[in-house]
Amino acid sequence: MYKIREAKQLTDNIYLMNVEARRVAKHCEPGQFIIVKIDEEGERIPLTICDYDREEGTVTIVFQVIGASTLQMSKLKAGDSFADFVGPLGKPSEFVTEDLQELKKKKILFVAGGVGTAPVYPQVKWLNEHGIKADAIVGAKNKDLVILEEEMEQVSNLYVTTDDGSYKRKGMVTEVIKDLVVNQKKEYDVVVAIGPMIMMKFVCLLTKELGLHTIVSMNPIMVDGTGMCGACRLTVGDEVKFACVDGPEFDGHLVNFDEAMKRQQMYKTEEGRAYLKEKEGDTHHGGCGHCGGEE
């Protein structure tokens, strides 16, 4: 059992939890993720790592309620436990193993969308701890959905934007990128974009135009997370890759987003859910972790 030390609600549907997981905390690096399972009957839910404390042996996760399983998870309180918590999974971000002196010469721009701020945070924090202050754009639909602003502020040069302009800048993250690169003439060696697939797709279209190398973090459907099932496969360049062992980070300009979104969209749209319910018959319990199911 993996005990929850702290549980808090960040927005109306985004939650943060600090969980005791000694082995994960000891080995995880920015860019990696974990899989959590609530109880015997639960699903294996892949979630990004938001923070970790090696001494305390704890890992912080942030998740959005998007289906029956994450809804059930959001009701857990400090003192409760997860049946299973496994990781770290996937490869760490490339910069973790780069030569530090070389890395210090690089200018990195992070672009986070919504709950994607959570996996961006440990990356900018790691860089900050190694003497590199990166620029970071955090985008959210509106003021209430901006998360981890204070934390991000401390470790990066932060630009917050909201789609509706209810807080700080108004507009999509792509508009901020344009502003920084085109208007302010800032130069970057690499862009790291993490958020909803549609956001990452549009960031990549723009950065390709601007000639900026871009890394994205993919979050497809997974079952085991160790390379066994192949559910998370996606096309990168002309190769099929497994997000769990080859990723989750890939060259964004090579990722086939349309295919990846189609593989995921079924679980996201009303039409898709109805379709799935028909396809999966009575095994569809609305708990796939990505769908609203019967709700």
Partner: peptide, 24 residues
């Protein structure tokens, strides 16, 4: 592997488990 894991390990065929599977 995925199909069997969903059904065997994750017990998709049972109502009390939350795993979905394609009923083609």
């Amino acid at each position: 592997n995925e199909y069997l894991t969903r059904n065997n390990l994750m017990k998709a065929f049972r109502d009390d488990y939350k795993t979905p599977i394609m009923r083609g």
